[in-house]
Design a binder for these strands. Structure first.
Length: 767
DNA sequence: TCCTTGCGAATTTTT
DNA sequence: TTCGCAAGGA
């Protein structure tokens, strides 16, 4: 039994505990150390596949089981609802229902919880609405329109993004520095931010960033409130610390001040959300932030083969900004990483598809295979291929249930019932179904609302008493207000499930869909039914609305076996036997835009993304790159990703599609691009100018195909030449060489000067 | 009010 | 190329 060093454990060694110590069994010494270091600040650097989740849950259970802390005095924070749920389930399994008492959730859900308690301190009511990204953008758009700003020049999405980044950094409108605002001088963005916040207050709404930002304001301006939390929450536990942004960091600091009983778990090598405001610096600086803190490294990997680990370690070693870890395993060597060069995207999809079927025949379940891409559009080619092959697949992270139009409409109705000042929701359904309230009416209402700084709801209530609108519109609005008032009054005495049905019927929304003859309409009605049944899981409307604004997730279909397609980002935290990593080409991965916008930092993050990809694999990794890719309709030739050459060559087995690895046209664009060798030979970065030059010259592979055919028919004699090992040959670019092996028209030649290459017979002359 | 047309943009997205 | 949005016409 582990020893304890905290005050009130005198009677902790009772019967219940000893039967619980099972959670410590099977932990390695480092893991055990991380679980038992319950005093002071601890940073657990948990490499990929080193049992991070196990440690986290064991530690949480340990705190409670050993009575180091009471469940309600522990704050455990994750980034995703999934992670929170998983932790809750696992801890409940160990220590039982006491786990319910732990403050466990995502940063945002815990932030919302705190904020609802003290909403009035930041000019909100406790029932404030949580806006999603869509709402935010619409709100920004409205402000811009009022300010007469050009939406073409400053897309609302972009401005909303800048404001979000400010919030990520803990900046309220007053705190945005002039320097900062000057970057967007044209648009008085700081002013828009300020107006945006004012609007949110009027709407009694908060966006995701506010859930934390308002907490910071509250903590700062109300020391007594902060002290209350500090006293109550004695032990903090943070998952995925490398992904925290400044606001989250400050939030944690406020709460951890004093006792400094904080345990952060993370992996600097898996920090891939910098573009969203995450600061790798938080984890890199941990020891400075919490002097005297303990750093524990988990380096024994229980997931991958040693080859996969060597490859991943070799790659990530190219990054400078890291704390450094060396993953090891006492498992098998495993297979080498397969790297395939293919002609184009279609060929890539075909090759991967074939490979998937081969594995399937060998008895590998589709559930154990995944294709991880850099950007979501890359899944398309694979989807098409799997459709032709009849291989079941699922795309993770696609369109979500709660984002569908009809669902959002229905939710908008519920939102207005629950919280009348929710303008965005009200506006969404004001004329849906059609109520004869057109643009003109809406503008009058907006005008009044802005003039008096009141919500649309109040503005409508006012305007129907005037003669400003057409009688028809006025009547229609009056009815709507009546309806909503009636529905709202039903909230108290009838249940929300029934209410939802009534609202959808009485508002005419169901009828509208019934009359709709479009092919989508029946599906939409189905979805609404599903929504109503989803309501059953909640105790009340408020709880439901909180859930859907914070937990917009997909229902997973795990009934049939299927291969998974997803982005590398979505793959973090998952693992599969067989991993496919297509599209490893400069510009695609590392992503060009990331390099352009964030330079060396961007490159490092891309590399971490590659590292995440590799370390998802239990058994095998197959990387591929295409020589030609279609980008927005035109063909571009591409060169293999530098990341390929950063993987130790000893861990790689390379296959190139016929003709690619050779000097294809002896001296044309391609040979410059990937000419000197098979692709692995290319170790140095291509200069930006060179890439530029290459991209400018885009080539349609069909044209090349034609060129190829022309050549081969013209050079029949050469084509028919038979090459045998030992033959001396001459190549335009590589010079003299000796044939080592021949396979059809594919030759392996040892060139006197240029080394060993694979080339196609038609490009060499027999001597 | 609805449909057409044309323009421009086009990574990653835990909440 | 393709999608989504906004403006303009019937």
């Amino acid at each position: 039994m582990p020893s304890l060093n905290v005050g009130d454990e005198s009677n902790s060694k009772n019967a219940g505990i000893s039967s619980n110590v099972g959670y410590l069994q099977g932990l390695n010494s480092k893991q055990l150390e991380a679980v038992e270091a319950v005093d002071g600040a601890v940073l657990v650097l948990a490499g990929a596949g080193t049992g991070k989740t196990r440690v986290l849950t064991a530690r949480l259970a340990h705190l409670i089981a050993q009575k180091v802390a009471m469940p309600w005095s522990i704050l455990a924070v994750t980034f995703t609802n999934k992670a929170a749920r998983e932790m809750r389930d696992r801890v409940t399994n160990i220590i039982g229902p006491m786990a319910e008492q732990v403050w466990l959730g995502t940063f945002h859900s815990l932030g919302a919880r705190i904020l609802r308690r003290h909403a009035e301190l930041v000019n909100l009511k406790p029932n404030f609405t949580i806006l999603d990204t869509d709402d935010q953008i619409r709100l920004i758009k409205q402000i811009m329109q009022a300010e007469n700003l050009d939406e073409k020049k400053w897309p609302p999405r972009v401005l909303s993004g800048v404001i979000q980044r400010w919030k990520d950094r803990g900046l309220t409108p007053e705190k945005v520095s002039d320097d900062e605002a000057k970057q967007y001088a044209d648009v008085k963005l700081a002013e828009i931010y300020s107006q945006y916040q004012d609007r949110l207050s009027v709407l009694n709404a908060a966006d995701f960033g506010d859930l934390l930002l308002h907490c910071l304001t509250i903590f700062q301006q109300n020391p007594d409130v902060l002290r209350e939390y500090q006293r109550r929450l004695t032990h903090l536990l943070v998952d995925e610390y490398q992904d925290t942004n400044v606001a989250q960091y400050l939030w944690l600091r406020f709460l951890a001040q004093g006792r400094q009983n904080i345990c952060c778990v993370g992996d600097d090598d898996q920090s891939i959300y910098g573009w969203r405001g995450a600061e790798v610096g938080n984890i890199l600086r941990f020891e400075n932030d919490f002097p005297g803190s303990k750093v524990i490294r988990l380096e024994q990997n229980y997931r991958s083969t040693s080859r996969v680990l060597t490859a991943a370690s070799g790659l990530i070693a190219h990054n400078e900004d890291r704390l450094g870890k060396t993953l090891w395993t006492d498992g098998n060597d495993g297979d080498k990483i397969i790297v395939r060069g293919v002609w184009d995207g279609e060929s890539e999809a075909r090759t991967v598809g074939d490979q998937v079927e081969t594995y399937q025949r060998k008895g590998v379940s589709l559930n154990e295979m995944a294709i991880l891409v850099r950007a979501s559009f890359q899944t398309r080619e694979f989807e098409e291929r799997f459709l032709t092959l009849g291989v079941p697949y699922q795309v993770i992270g696609g369109a979500r249930f709660y984002e569908r139009m009809e669902i959002r409409d229905a939710i908008a109705y519920l939102r207005v019932i629950y919280q009348p000042d929710d303008d965005l929701a009200l506006e969404r359904i004001l004329n849906k179904p059609k109520r004869g309230i057109g643009l003109a009416s809406l503008q009058s209402i907006h005008h009044l609302a802005r003039l008096e700084s009141i919500s649309l709801w109040l503005a409508i209530a006012k305007i129907i008493d005037t003669d400003e609108l057409r009688p028809a519109a006025r009547k229609s609005l009056a009815k709507l207000i009546d309806d909503f008032t009636r529905w709202r009054s039903m909230l108290d005495h009838s249940d929300h499930i029934e209410l939802a049905g009534i609202v959808l019927d009485e508002s005419g929304y169901t009828e509208m869909l019934l009359k709709d003859k479009s092919p989508e309409a029946p599906g939409r009605l189905e979805n609404l039914k599903e929504l109503v049944s989803a309501l059953e899981e909640f105790d009340g409307l408020g709880q439901f609305l909180e859930h859907i604004s914070l937990v917009m997730e997909n229902a997973e279909d795990d009934t049939t076996e299927q291969i998974s397609l997803m982005t590398l980002h979505a793959a973090k935290g998952l693992e599969f036997d067989k991993i496919f990593l297509p599209g490893w080409e400069e510009g695609v991965f590392p992503n060009q835009r990331s390099l352009d916008e964030s330079g060396a930092k961007g490159l490092e993050e891309e590399r971490r993304l590659a590292y995440v990809g590799l370390t998802r694999a239990r058994e095998t990794v197959e990387i591929s790159f295409a020589a030609n890719r279609r980008v927005y309709g035109n063909w571009q030739s591409s060169i293999p990703s530098r990341f390929i050459s950063e993987i130790p060559e000893s861990e790689i087995e390379q296959f190139d599609e016929m003709g690619l690895s050779s000097d294809f046209f002896g001296g044309t664009v391609q040979s410059e691009a990937w000419g000197q060798d098979n692709f692995l030979g290319q170790t140095r970065f291509q200069s930006a100018e060179k890439r530029q030059r290459l991209n400018v010259k885009s080539v349609n592979p069909r044209d090349i195909q034609v060129a190829l055919e022309d050549r081969s028919s013209a050079d029949v004699t050469i084509d028919e030449t038979f090459f045998a090992p030992g033959d001396r040959v001459f190549h335009q670019k590589f010079g003299m060489g000796t044939v080592k092996r021949s396979d059809g028209d594919k030759l392996e030649i040892a060139f006197d000067k240029a080394g060993e290459k694979k080339v196609i017979s038609r490009f060499v002359k027999q001597l």
